[in-house]
């Protein structure tokens, strides 16, 4: 066998050996419960445990943010952080100028008092999750309220609003519970403004399970 033909044969053999290998999925670590618990009594008192996420056909989620205290910028940063949690295009959102067509409305206003509050210090926020006529429907637009607790001219609310914007968008994406780990952005009183490994694994799992709820617009 001549030298070039020997090289050709050796390379072919090497390529065939490489072709035999395969790679397993990485281990993703822990996650927390994200599902909503809804009591119902059509066949006696029961609790349904439901999961929700925006489906590919509903993306990008349209978000209208009140142009106060840099709220649109906080929401844009929150979108980027959550999008970065996904590898396979599971979530996308855009800011829109028309609140009438929005799936999610973000206002800076006083707390109505019956949502999912997050209070990291200088501000508070909440997301109203409204399951309407049947427990398998979610009313949209979802409303997020951001509420600076101090006078914005005295205490800069921006760092706090940055954290709660990401936290509340996590609720609007379908994380209907709080994490029990202070390092997670979905902890009830979050300090982190970036999703942790547990946050990421939670939303990854959530977005790869069938959604039990359908968004409906009245």
């Amino acid at each position: 066998m001549t030298r070039p033909h020997g090289l050709l044969a050796a390379t072919t053999l090497g390529v065939l050996l490489l072709a035999c290998g395969d790679v397993s999925s990485p281990s993703r670590g822990g996650r927390y419960d994200w599902r909503i618990f809804i009591p119902y009594d059509s066949a006696g008192p029961r609790v349904d445990t439901l999961t929700f996420h925006w489906t590919a056909a509903q993306l990008p989620v349209r978000i209208w943010a009140q142009d106060t205290l840099q709220t649109p910028q906080h929401m844009k940063d929150a979108i980027d952080r959550w999008k970065a949690a996904f590898l396979y295009g599971e979530f996308d959102a855009v800011l829109v100028a028309d609140s009438g067509s929005a799936d999610l409305i973000v206002r800076v206003q006083p707390l109505p008092g019956n949502g999912l509050p997050a209070m990291p210090g200088a501000c508070e926020a909440e997301t109203e999750i409204d399951t309407v006529a049947t427990r398998r429907e979610l009313r949209i637009p979802i409303h997020i309220s951001l509420h600076p607790k101090a006078d914005p001219s005295v205490v800069d609310p921006a760092p706090c609003l940055d954290v709660v914007a990401t936290h509340e968008l996590g609720h609007a994406m379908g994380i209907f519970q709080h994490s029990d780990d202070p390092l997670d952005v979905m902890f009830a009183q979050p300090d982190a403004n970036t999703p942790s490994a547990r946050d990421i694994h939670t939303v990854e799992t959530m977005y790869h399970l069938p959604s039990d709820m359908v968004p409906v617009r009245p």
Binding site: D22, V23, S25, P26, R28, L87, Y88, E204, T205, H208, L209
Partner: peptide, 8 residues
């Protein structure tokens, strides 16, 4: 090739 719930 990955798997979160089903193979991807």
């Amino acid at each position: 090739q990955d798997q979160i719930i089903a193979p991807i």
